[in-house]
Each structure stands twice: as C-alpha cells, then as structure tokens.
Design a protein around this nucleic acid. Structure first.
Length: 858
RNA sequence: GGGCGCUUAGCUCAGUUGGUUAGAGCGCAGCCUUCACACGGCUGAGGCCGAGGGUUCGAGUCCCCCAGCGCCCA
C-alpha cells in the first residue's frame, strides 16, 4: 500500500469524542455525494439493492434499525470493493395503515359519493364525529400526512448512517409508481395473466374490502361444536353433523363425508333436509372431509370458510350466500327459488326472519334458540378453542363474500415459482423453506383489488349498455401514454365525462390495488423501468428484508418479475431476523414504544446501535440488548483513541511503505492481518456481516492491547532506523486496514479517524486486499509468542498488585527452542511493553518466571 | 398435522469440511489514580456443549431418537 501522506494531526482534537459525529458527517456526505449512484456504470459494475420501502404510517421501530443496518453494511462493503452501489430508499404509503391513520389524525372519513371540495381544510383538532369527505380530498390528506412522515423517517435513516443515495428516493403513491403499477397491470391483462371475476372472496366486514391469502392470520378463538340433526329425505332416520357455525344453516348446500368413510358410504347420493329451513341437500363425498372431526360428516355452506369454497367449486354446488358486505345476514333468502328447493317456504322464511339483519354472532344466538325449540340441536353445544381466520389488521373474523375482484393467476405458475425459489440465493439458506411452503400452500389466485380509497386505481373502465348493464368482461383499457390515470375522474378514450354512469356510457373501475400489487414492483419503480437506468440495475443484486414478509413482498415480487421478465427480480435475498424482548419473547409494543430508535441513537450514538444490529447474525432473531450497544460505543471510542495514539506515533515523518516491514513480530502481525482480510471478505461475500464484524473486532482489540503496546516505543526509537521503520509501516498499515474493515459497521467514527490522515472518504476507499500487504506478511508465530510472554508479565504484576509500569528485573522464559527464538527476535519489544530489564531463556516445558524489580527509592 | 430454526459459562452469543487441555463479550471478583483511552487498562474464577443411543482411533461438530423453546405453513 502506498502511504504518501505524512500525517498532520492538526485536525485531531485533544480530547476526541464520538458525540456529534453524526451531525458533523451526514451533511458532508450529502454535500460530497459520497453515496451517489454512478448512472453511467454498466450492469456488471453495479451492485443494486431492492430496498424495502417502510410503511410510513407506522412508526419506525427498533426492528427496522436492525435489518436496515444489515443491508447498509453490505452496501458499504460492495461500494468499497469498487461496485457502483444502487441503493435507493422508498416509502410505502399505500393502503389501509395510511387510511386509518389519516382518519384518526384528521378526524375524517372517505365517502366516494361526495364531490371534491378544493377548499376543504381539516379541523385543527379531530372532533368526536368524523367528517365525511370526497375521495380526492381524502387522498390529498393521505399525501399530506405521508409527506411529513417521510421526512421523519428520512432524518432517522440519515442519522443511522444508511448510505442511501437520496436522489433515488421514491414513494409508492407517487405518479411514477402509479404509472409503473398501471402499466404492469395492463401488460398482465394483455397477456391474460390477470382477470376479474365475480367469486367468493375473503372479506373483512369492518373494512369492507376483499383481502388476500397472504394477509390472513389464524387466531385462536373460543367456539362451540353444535350437533345438529338433519332428517333423511327417505324418512328413515337422521344424520347428525357438528358445526361451529350453526347460523350458516340456511346457506347449507350439501353434507360431506370422506369417500372412504364406511359410516356414510351408503348415504352418498341420497338427500337430507335441513332443519328449520326444509331445504333438500345431497350427501356428497370429498377427500377434504375429515372423518376424525366431529361426527365425520359436515355441512357445506356458501360460505363458511375456504374449504367450503373448494367443495362448492369442485362439487359444482349451488350458491346460497346470505351474508352481506357489512357482515350481516341479508334481508331475505330465496327459499323455494330455482337454486333453493324448499319443502316449506313459509316456515323457512319465518325462521329466516329471526336471522335477517343480524351479525354472525347475533344470528348464532338466534338460531341456537330456534334449533333448540325445534329439537334439531342434539345435546349442549361443546365449547372448544379453534383457529379462526382474520385479516391481519382486522378485529372480526373474515367472512367469505361473493364480489367482483381482480386476480393475478398465480396458481398456473406454482411449479415455476417453486423453481424460482430454488434459483434464488437465500441468506441464510434455510429461509428458502418459508417461500417453498407458502407456494405449496397456495389455494387460490392472488386477489389484488381492494375496496379502499388510498392506492393505485385500476386503469380500466367498463361500458354500460343500453339497459344499464355493466359489461365487466371487456374493460376499456387506458392508453399507455396517458398513464397514470384515475378512472373515477379521467375519461376513457372515445367517451365524454357526461356519459359517466349513464346507459350507453361508461363507468370507472371503483377499486384500488392491493399494496403488495404495487410494492411487488419496487425494482421497476426504483429502477425506472423502461429507461436506460433499468438495464443497469435489473435484476437487482440484493433483496434485504425480514422473514415475516417472505410470503407477501418477496413472493409477490418474484411473481411479477417471473411474469413480466421471465426472471428473478434479484439474485440474492438476505433475510433478517426479528428483535425479541430481552426475555426472548417477540418484542412487545410497550417496550417498542418506550424505546424509540431516535432515543437509542441519542443515548448510545449511531455507531453503537449499528454495532448491536450488526452483531445479529443473518436470519437470527436477536434480543434487544442495550448492553450490546454500550459495547459498540466502547469500540467506537477505542477506534477514536487508538487511532489518535497510533497516528501520533507516525506524525512528523513520511510513513514507510510495506517493504520496510522487516521485523518478525511485525511480519507475523501483518500475516494475521492478511488472514483477517481473507476471512472478512469471504464472510461479506456470503452476506455474513456479523462474522466480518466479530473477526475484525477481535483482531482490533488485540491490536490495541498488545501490538500497539509492543511497538509504541520502537516506533519512536531513532537509533535503529530499520526497526523503527518496520514498526511505523506496520502500525500505519494495520491502522489503515482496520479502519476500513470497520467502516461498514461504524461509518461515523471510522470516517472521523480516516479524515485525520486522508483527504477522501473512508467509505470510498478500497476494501483491503492482500495485495496491499505486498510480501510483508510472514506467519512466523512471533505475535502470539510475544503476546503470551507479555500476558505472563502482566499476570505477575497483577498478582503482586503493582502498576503495569512497574519494572521487571528478570523474565526467565522456559519454552521450546522455536518459541525461544521467536521471543529472542522480539525481545526489545517485550522489554518495552513490560518494562523488563533482562530476559533469560531455558529450553523446557513452557513456563515464565517473572521477577519484579525492587521498588525504586523515592 | 407438515416443515424450519434454536438448546454451549449467571446473561447474550461464537465455534466453517469431526482432530490435542471448549472461545468471546457482558456480568462478577481482584488489582492498576497508566503520560491514547477511568466512556479506561490488566488479571482471575465460571461450562460433564438439552437427554439418550449410534458411527469413529477421536464427536459441541456427523447419524438416529426424545424433550423444551421459537417461528413458518396447513
């Protein structure tokens, strides 16, 4: 390595401190465009990162700091290796979380039927009663709030030291992101990969929107098995079924048992009558029926759960849906209609009247009463606890409601998607199983439409025929050049605004896209799909993210890229773990709210918090541990002090090159340094930042505690120029290498100390290589042998309760010949570091006898 | 029910193709008012590597089985 500089330490503070380094360096990095992407770089020179866009309406928690630090360490490593790093930051502002926050923050509610009010201003303080506003007004408030959220997030990210190129900032609600979303949607439509259909869909009755399988979660809820008797149509006996949802009895379309179930085999093909409603339903066979569950025979209703939907579809059963979009039973049912044969319509309607307008819970109470009275309820309901499907952000169990939705046809591509999962490099590798089991468990196409307001609209309209019937099958698509459009305010080609909603006219698609339908396009959005830039960054090199969104973000991105480009969207996925409470439980809200990321950065310093984060191994859940941050802080301070001291030894004269490294101790230390470079480089190449940090840290402390101590006097000594030069060259080399190896983890303190002897940023310096060591490295065992002897001297001083500066009269080293030779060649260093006067050597089993000098007369 | 991961010192964790007396940090104890660092330094005491079985000259490391914890999927 060349060291043309003569350190001039005029800029080194007398008492250096790590406090305030963030405030000093963030603006300078911005000014000097240290992290700017070189948009002229060719694809092979680029390292591109598909940064997760955080949901801005949520607050950033410590888990974000954790995983974003991991990605940043990798970005910094790649940048120092000479790659042109494409590291954007996006904001995910679409979707329900933002809507909810806007409703609460401003005290408003969206009513799409209202006209836009350009002069609307929300009240200074939200009132008890929410104000209804138009969709456009609502969206404006969403944008206003997310804009301020984004500023707060950006400040935190900069403070944390993320080496993002802020010129590449994007948001998922921007016109650009909308344009990309709509274009990608239209491409899929053209290729037949997306379709709309009136079908049973998972439905949240509070948000009144469809949700997708990826947004489900099971929650254990109390319920009860109700044993209900159906009378056989032939009049010879009844069949008892068990159900947790007796209120769906009027929606019953069949009974089902396993085809191999001998108890029910004779009944397949026969019919039974539902109690209370006297509807004749068949007894059918299907393998999904569980003989172990309840009485082994179940009622199929349209629709109680997703299994009902499967049975309904595969067995071609009629539809008798009775739950509305508000989760309440419809006002009436068509008993006796074409699809609804009924032996006693009057009784059925009378009983149904007890359910009409009620919620599921209320209806359950009512029907249990009716069943009890009629004698069809056998025994008492048996309480159980069972998993119930919820929308992850919802408070009431999901219903299944038939509605028109847009779907991406994922099911035909399952095998191909599984192959994509295999093709992707997962870090750690075992995370691939999450993807695999998710794809294998898919039970339907991906529903991407949401009946919400704040999101990307579908760029289509529908013709209304002369009779006022909407033709959903042949949507009018927006012209590519016009994107992005909002079909609720923009007019389709060939129509005029007055024709909206009129017979013979058109109507816009009312829905918005699922948030994942947009964020699955982050490579296209960030990389400006369609421009020259995209070719330079796609497929991305790295997707860093947490494991909880493998089934959503990672999966959906793979789907979109597979369909659009027939490739993976990124070649590597680095999956971060979760932050757990110190008691190993999932981080609780209460703790997360008390311990804000910004507060931690204030208390410990950004480098310290990053140190804690980078200590968490890839994919491993990590305990929230402020003690670890204190250790990181200590390391940062040590970097500061050790650098100051070492540079002080180098001051005043040119630093010799590596050819000057001639002393065995120095050459052995440099050999170890070379090994460290190999190890950390390899670890980083495998995305194992934690190992790189651990090894570097370990080396660094030994370097400070032992090597600097051993050579600090020699580096000053003038009577033996070669030995002095060797010490000075080695110190400079090791210091330079260590500062650079630590730079991805401790960007602030390393930049500070680097600036004391370099003009350019350490973050643009070259990642250390063995080449720069020249032939200086020579693994000869001296470093370890001398450290061992020094430890023996220190041990004696400690047990004798004297200062480390106390003089030692004699050290008698007993050891094998080779070790003795190593020590002999570094004897002066040992004497310097241990204040030793004489060293004697004896061959034999390893032992040190340290004789302290009598205390000096004072 | 299927799958994945974890179980090593009081705590948090390393331990990369199996190789001599198992490592680090924190904490703890003791010492050192040291001229880079008291936001420090030095030294030390702590472990039959979750249980059982197997392969091997040799197992924390490989195989089988069991248990506990966590997560993913159904």
């Amino acid at each position: 390595m060349e060291n043309p500089t003569t350190p001039s330490l005029g800029s080194v503070p007398e008492k250096p401190t790590i406090d305030g380094l963030e405030a000093a360096w963030v603006p300078r990095w911005n000014e000097k465009n240290v992290y700017g992407f070189d948009a002229t770089a060719t694809r092979d020179q680029v390292f591109s990162i598909d940064t997760p866009p955080p949901t801005v309406s949520g607050s950033l928690h410590i888990g974000h700091v954790f995983s974003y630090t991991h990605a940043d360490a990798i970005a910094r490593f790649q940048r120092m290796r000479g790659r042109k790093v494409f590291y954007p930051m996006g904001w995910d502002d679409n979707g329900l979380p933002t809507e909810r926050r806007v409703e609460n923050f401003f005290g408003v509610r969206c009513d799409p039927s209202l006209p836009y009010d350009p002069s609307f201003e929300p009240p200074a303080k939200p009132g008890d009663q929410k104000i209804s506003i138009s969709r456009k007004n609502f969206v404006e408030l969403c944008q206003r709030l997310t804009a301020t959220d984004e500023e707060v997030f950006k400040e935190l990210w900069q403070r944390l030291g993320l080496s993002v190129d802020w010129k590449l900032e994007y948001s998922t609600i921007s016109a650009h992101a909308q344009e990309v979303s709509q274009r990608a949607f239209l491409n899929m439509l053209q290729r037949g990969e997306v379709y709309s259909s009136e079908a049973p869909t998972l439905w949240d009755v509070d948000f009144r929107t469809a949700v997708s399988q990826a947004e489900l979660e099971d929650r254990e809820r109390p319920g009860a098995y109700h044993r209900v008797r159906f009378e056989r149509s032939d009049g010879i006996g009844g069949i008892d079924i068990e159900t947790t949802r007796p209120e769906l009895l009027p929606s019953c379309v069949a009974l089902v048992a396993h085809p191999d179930d001998a108890r029910y085999q004779p009944l397949f093909g026969t019919t039974v009558r539902t109690p209370l409603f006297q509807v004749e339903v068949p007894v059918v066979a299907h393998e999904l029926a569980d003989p172990e569950k309840g009485s082994g025979i179940a009622m199929i209703c349209t629709f109680g759960d997703t299994t009902d939907v499967t049975w309904w579809r595969e067995l071609r059963l009629p539809t008798r849906a009775l739950i509305g979009r508000d989760g309440r039973f419809l006002p009436s049912a068509d008993f006796g209609g074409d699809q609804w044969p009924c032996a006693d319509v009057a009784a059925a309607n009378e009983n149904y009247a007890q359910l009409a307008g009620k919620s599921a819970n209320q209806a359950r109470t009512a029907i249990v009463e009716l069943l009890t009275t009629s004698g069809a309820l056998i025994g008492e309901p048996r309480p159980i606890t069972h998993p119930v499907k919820f929308y992850e952000k919802g408070d009431r169990p999901l219903e299944i409601v038939t509605s028109r939705q847009w779907f991406v046809a994922t099911m035909p591509h399952r095998e191909a998607l599984l192959a994509r999962g295999e093709e992707l490099n997962w870090h750690p590798d075992f995370m691939k199983h999450r993807f695999k089991s998710w794809v294998e468990g898919l039970n339907g196409d991906w529903c991407i439409s949401r009946q919400r307001y704040f999101g990307v609209p579908f760029p289509v309209w529908y013709r209304i025929d002369g009779d006022g019937i909407i033709n959903f099958d042949e949507p009018i698509v927006a012209e590519a050049a016009s994107l992005p459009i909002d079909p609720s305010s923009d007019c389709p080609p060939g129509f005029a605004e007055p024709q909206r909603g009129q017979a013979g006219g058109f109507i816009g698609d009312p829905d918005v896209m699922d948030t994942w339908a947009t964020s699955s396009l982050t490579p296209q959005i960030a990389g400006h799909w369609g421009t020259d830039l995209f070719e330079r960054v796609f497929p991305m090199d790295l997707r860093p993210q947490a494991h909880e969104i493998i089934r959503t973000w990672l999966f959906s991105t793979v789907v979109r890229s597979h369909l659009e480009f027939n490739s993976l969207p990124f070649t590597n996925a680095a999956i971060s773990g979760w932050i757990l409470d110190p008691d190993r439980k999932k981080m609780s809200k209460s703790v997360g709210n008390v311990v804000t990321p910004m507060g931690l950065l204030d208390t410990h310093g950004s480098d310290a918090v990053r140190y804690w984060a980078a200590s968490g191994r890839p994919g491993t859940d990590t305990a929230f541990d402020e003690a670890q941050m204190k250790i990181g802080r200590r390391l940062a301070i040590k970097v500061l002090n050790a650098s100051k001291f070492a540079l002080g030894r180098l001051e005043g004269a040119p630093i010799p090159g590596v050819d000057a490294i001639t002393q065995p101790l120095d050459r052995d230390m440099v050999a170890a340094l070379g090994q460290l470079i190999d190890e950390t480089t390899k670890a980083f190449e495998q995305y194992d930042y934690a190992r790189a940090l651990e090894r570097t840290e370990q080396f660094f402390w030994a370097f400070c505690d032992d090597y600097i101590e051993l050579v600090k006097i020699r580096a000053y000594r003038t009577e033996s120029p070669a030995e002095t030069a060797s010490a000075r060259a080695s110190l400079a080399l090791a210091l330079s290498v260590l500062q650079r190896l630590l730079a991805p983890f401790l960007p602030f303190v390393t930049e500070e100390v680097w600036s004391w002897w370099h003009a350019d940023s350490v973050h643009l310096a070259e990642w250390p290589t063995r080449d720069e060591l020249g032939t200086a490295g020579d693994p000869n065992g001296s470093y370890e042998a001398v450290r061992d002897a020094l430890a023996a001297v220190r041990r004696e001083k400690t047990t004798s309760k004297v200062s480390m500066r106390a003089e030692v009269e004699l050290v008698t080293v007993t050891n094998d010949a080779a070790t003795i030779e190593r020590l002999r060649r570094a004897e002066e260093d040992l004497k310097d570091a241990g204040a030793v006067r004489t060293v004697a050597y004896v061959e034999g089993a390893a032992n040190y006898v340290v004789t302290l000098a009598p205390p000096a007369e004072s």
